[in-house]
Design a protein around this nucleic acid. Sequence first.
DNA 1: CTGTTAGCGCTTTCAC
DNA 2: GTGAAAGCGCTAACAG
Lengths: 337, 337
Amino acid sequence: MKTTIYDVARAAGVSITTVSRVINNTGRISGKTRQKVMNVMKEMAYTPNVHAAALTGKRTNMIALVAPDISNPFYGELAKSIEERADELGFQMMICSTDYDPKKETKYFSVLKQKKVDGIIFATGIENHGSMSALEEIASEQIPLAMISQDKPLLPMDIVVMDDVRGGYEAAKHLLSLGHTNIACIVGDGSTTGEKNRIKGFRQAMEEAGVPVDESLIIPTRFSLESGKEEAGKLLDRNAPTAIFAFNDVLACAAIQAARIRGIKVPDDLSIIGFDNTILAEMAAPPLTTVAQPIKDMGRSVIELLAEAIEGKRKTKQKIVLPPELVVRLSTAPLKT
Amino acid sequence: MKTTIYDVARAAGVSITTVSRVINNTGRISGKTRQKVMNVMKEMAYTPNVHAAALTGKRTNMIALVAPDISNPFYGELAKSIEERADELGFQMMICSTDYDPKKETKYFSVLKQKKVDGIIFATGIENHGSMSALEEIASEQIPLAMISQDKPLLPMDIVVMDDVRGGYEAAKHLLSLGHTNIACIVGDGSTTGEKNRIKGFRQAMEEAGVPVDESLIIPTRFSLESGKEEAGKLLDRNAPTAIFAFNDVLACAAIQAARIRGIKVPDDLSIIGFDNTILAEMAAPPLTTVAQPIKDMGRSVIELLAEAIEGKRKTKQKIVLPPELVVRLSTAPLKT
DNA sequence: CTGTTAGCGCTTTCAC
DNA sequence: GTGAAAGCGCTAACAG
């Protein structure tokens, strides 16, 4: 049967308080009693009941990651890097996949409140107004919050983002340095700040180089492979850019496929640069040159920030901006003359 | 502040027992009181404390998914499908990423015991002997266990797997039907039952077609992109198979890359078929023909099996074998004559 | 240094 | 139909 602290106390001939003390390493106990208790615990294979502890106000060591879709490699890698560091810090992670569904979002917030998680990391914007009240209740209970890869908190929380302006800038710079000037951008719906910033950086680099931006070459998509393939196809049929800057790796893969169908060689006839540096970038043929988000660092940073907040080491909110890194592979090449 | 069941009871002018009853929908209460209590709960934004409930023996509604690496698209998609159905069934999911590390495995088992999760799903073999005792303790507490995509339980548990023999068979059959006979297999280290079964199915189809299997064309790898690229490259330099059966999509992508470097056209000069049908299959250029694992169905099935076990609806263990499905895309083509 | 005791918030007999 | 009261397993004053 389930052994409780009482069983251990009895077997060790001490009070439950003493056992509790050695478990939590609090108060002062003689090395002898501590040893004895530890031995008994081991023998009985005793593990404290987390719920009972939580009930008295102790931490649950559970954090939640709210993400739209963990089957998306970007979020999958983010989840992994967070989990890794969380584990080192003694936290377990619960996954709340919202699937871009406001109802699931709201539902999860309610669950998170009941479960008394120690902290919550949002890898998704909080789009839904209905969720706000639920979230405010959580916030009112002083549960630390953090946001990653997004920058519209709505509530005070720690933030970790990448420098998207610089990311867009570096992508353009790379293409420019290869001699390209006829550059198209395959973007999303333009709604996120990340996207806006990438465009901003792109324009900035173009301007510095004295190359005018052809607005008709900025192609919106629904951020999906299908949509990307379709739009890239139209673009390729209509114009003949010598380079494409895709706003994520999926879109870059879409562009490669669209080019392939049309017999356009990448990178010989068309250079393509992606964004994110997910596993797709390595897997693509040709392997993708891409602007890497420092996913690992971002993950580590949020959970560390959150852990600090949970431990009450810091009361002010922090924002960390990490730099992107250009990863050159084989999908970009000098402009043929 | 945190509202408790007492606050609700007071505000509604009833006892906590009554409130508890309407929360859990147990016992008999007049519609009137029920309504009143419900209203008060809503007004006060009351949510019951899960830990207190768990302490009295109620379920925690938390299940754990033990997987080696959620950043791997296969496990990511599996996790997603499980999470989706789990959510519908009222369970939340905790992710235990073992990273192929026996120490993490053992550590997690201990945590899972403390947290009193309602059930555990293994998407990883239980390799580690040190973990076994920890796991046995969990099992001894009657916590339902299930295994997905693996078939070496070590302990009684529900199992959901795909029919790998048939998968290998279908892959070979497809290639054969396209006229290929000179077929290479890019495999892993041969350790898993899944792999063995795929080879078995492959041989079976070859035999039925009366085509001898060239053992030197069965190439082991470390299952990584790098390793796959290297081995596929050597193979292509040495022999000239007209088709390759890669044992997962990553290895298939590796083969595409190796071919591309050598100017070998896929599928014109070389057909490649993958396995799993992860997102990589769609993203590849050309898009991969592959043997699809029914990831969604597998995910749904395990969690449903587990839920039944948790609810005590069934005491016997079950094993579900799902069929693979051939997904034809553009990486395979008829043998040029 | 160690033990007693009062909760934490909820479920569940057992009475009424 | 409703309530009083006894725990569930643990932590944290408060005593000694």
